[in-house]
Amino acid sequence: MSNDQPPSGQPPEDDPFLKRPQPPRQPPPGDSAPPPGEGPYGQPPSGPYGGGEGPYGGGQGGGPYGQGGGPYGGGSFGEPYGGADPLAGMPPLAPFGTRLVARIIDALIIAIPLAVISLAANGFDLSTSNGQSEADRLGDEFNTGTQWLWTLISLVVYIGYDTLMTRSRGQTLGKRWLGLRVGMLADGSVPGTGPSLLRATVLWLPALLCCYCIWWIVIALTIVSSRPYKQGWHDKAAKTVVVTA
């Protein structure tokens, strides 16, 4: 048997002690693991920014308004996509009756001047001739190019009025007089040109072009039955809501 001893330093590769499981490394004295629920820098690990503070520097739950609150103090216009109460922080929704009166006022503001201009330009001839009744004469007038021209003018005026008034301050004249306002559902802001135009088009185009009274009944039913924001189809299309100002 050889009396050679293994050289000092690194043990040989066939040393059986190297094949044993190594005990877990213990932290040096004085070091301690971070408390449960905190990361290595003392902040809660939840969220992409390492804690309750978002990129805007404040608030529990982050967000540009702090405390998850929108401009009305509850969330993004009442936290429509989450939260216990979707109406929390939102101004009171406009009553249907008040909205209806405001819409009638706006319609009259435009309809009366258009009717005066149409009659002054002989847009309709209500006299009868050749044995035709008044109803037949009106039917013929609706099928003339002149009537289609007046329909196009009416569409431009109604849609333009609603779009310009809504995008400027969220209020048509009827809504302003009755203390109502249109706001974006997401944050309560005044709708921009795109949402305002879309809202006005969905509201007025079917009403003036083909459906007349039927479309107003449909709009009324969607407002009454919509939960929780009382949105008509024009509101749903533009993602808006009508509240008290």
Rank of each mutant, 00 (worst) to 15 (best):
G63T: 04
P95H: 07
G68S: 14
A88R: 08
G37A: 09
S32E: 13
G30A: 09
G69N: 12
E53D: 09
D31N: 09
P45G: 15
Y81E: 15
G57T: 11
G66I: 01
G42F: 04
P11Q: 06
G68M: 13
G9L: 04
P91V: 04
G51I: 01
P11C: 03
P71T: 11
G30N: 13
D15E: 14
P48Y: 08
G39V: 03
D14P: 02
G59I: 07
P34K: 12
G75Q: 01
P12N: 11
P91K: 11
D15S: 09
L87E: 02
P23V: 01
K19E: 04
P80H: 04
R25N: 10
G73E: 05
G61W: 03
L18M: 05
G57K: 07
P48M: 11
R25V: 15
G70P: 02
P29K: 15
P48K: 10
G51T: 03
G73Y: 12
S46I: 15
R20G: 01
G68A: 08
P35Q: 14
P34G: 11
P27H: 08
P21W: 00
G58H: 14
G54L: 03
G66L: 07
P44H: 13
G63R: 02
D15G: 04
G78L: 06
A88I: 00
P16I: 01
Q5G: 02
P28L: 14
G75Y: 00
S8F: 06
G62H: 01
G89I: 00
L87Q: 05
G54S: 05
D31T: 04
Q60V: 13
P24N: 13
P21E: 04
R20D: 10
F77Q: 02
S76W: 11
P16Q: 08
R20E: 12
P86M: 05
G61V: 04
P27L: 14
P44K: 12
G58C: 06
P29N: 10
S46M: 14
G30T: 08
P44M: 13
Q60H: 09
G42N: 10
G47W: 09
Q60K: 12
S76G: 12
G54F: 01
R20C: 01
P55I: 09
P64H: 07
G82H: 09
G30L: 12
G52M: 07
E13I: 06
M90A: 15
G70S: 07
G82Y: 07
A94N: 09
G66D: 01
G75R: 00
G51S: 04
S46H: 14
P35A: 15
P27I: 03
E53F: 12
P12V: 03
G74W: 00
G82R: 14
S8D: 04
S8W: 02
K19H: 07
G63C: 09
G37W: 04
